[in-house]
Nucleic acid binder design. Structure first.
Length: 271
DNA sequence: ACGAAGCCCTGCAAGC
DNA sequence: TGCTTGCAGGGCTTCG
């Protein structure tokens, strides 16, 4: 399940292979993703050069011939470079074949992902123009969270997971950052002090930066054939540990569902 | 306007 | 063993 670190890792992995390459073929095998894939997509892309790429939140944007190809990985999506001749698997929904015989292949079993063509400036697109700041930039600070949260009764966890507040904070890292900051996930966002938001911002930046440094390691993907869990899982302090002892105080961690998301916290350490 | 709930989808795991 | 059920979750949409 790609969170921001995985999306960033994906971009760094594929960009060098697609930059300045010309698209020689476009194959879309499954048009029904989060949004329907435009059936004219090939006509926008064929013969065009990929001149750049960047990330905004969890969206990947590739600059192609004056427009932008926007890709979201949803929660099961991946993007990788393959030999164009490699026969596709069941969930390989799109190939962009490049001039060097390689292909950029989009895979997404659950089809929560999206592939959209943006003819106009990306920042004006409805999916992008309300997005909050990038969490790893200076635009994201305690003051920002404090100002935006005044009078809000929504839980602080839902607040920091809202992409209008800040982008890229998914469920796993929200749980971890709140634990590290000692902030109770169900506490009303509007009742948290500036000082505590400063701490929370620091822990959010820390978990995200650490995960990027580890190459965006996630949970399930890294359980090898020997059954050993990936090492990132072992570094998670609360996520997936409901009922187990808190690593700080030893009391059992509580687990509740908030907005249909698993929420794990220590009722003693987090206030 | 705000906050909570619903929905999209498939793979996996647990229960019967 | 094979079915059914439940859960996982990003993020937009709908409802109250």
């Amino acid at each position: 399940m790609p969170e921001l670190p995985e999306v960033e890792t994906t971009l760094r992995g594929v960009l060098p292979h697609v930059l300045n390459k010309v698209i020689t073929a476009v194959t879309v095998r499954h048009y029904s993703l989060r949004y329907p894939v435009d059936n004219k997509l090939p006509s926008y892309l064929l013969g065009r050069e990929i001149s750049g790429g960047y990330r905004r939140g969890k969206y990947l944007l590739f600059l192609i011939g004056g427009g932008t190809l926007m890709i979201h990985l949803g929660m099961s999506g991946s993007l990788r470079i393959v030999n164009a001749s490699l026969s596709p698997d069941k969930h390989d929904h799109m190939d962009l074949v490049l001039s060097d015989g390689k292909a950029l292949r989009f895979t997404d079993p659950r089809r929560f992902g999206a592939i959209l063509w943006l003819a106009d400036a990306p920042e004006q697109h409805p999916l992008l123009h309300h997005l909050g700041p990038e969490p790893l930039t200076d635009a994201f600070g305690g003051q920002h969270l404090f100002d935006r949260s005044r009078k809000k009764t929504v839980s602080v966890k839902s607040f920091i997971m809202d992409s209008h507040t800040v982008v890229g904070v998914g469920n796993i890292y929200a749980n971890e950052a709140l634990f590290m900051a000692g902030v109770h996930p169900l506490k009303a966002a509007g009742k948290i002090s500036l000082q505590r938001y400063e701490v929370l911002v620091t822990t959010i930046k820390t978990v995200l930066a650490d995960a990027i440094r580890q190459g965006g390691t996630t949970l399930r993907d890294f359980v090898g054939g020997d059954g050993k869990p990936g090492y990132f899982r072992q570094s998670l302090k609360v996520y997936g540990r409901g009922g187990e002892p808190c690593l700080a105080c030893g009391r059992p961690l509580k687990e509740v569902r908030l907005a249909q998301r698993s929420t794990v916290y220590c009722g003693y350490c987090q206030r």
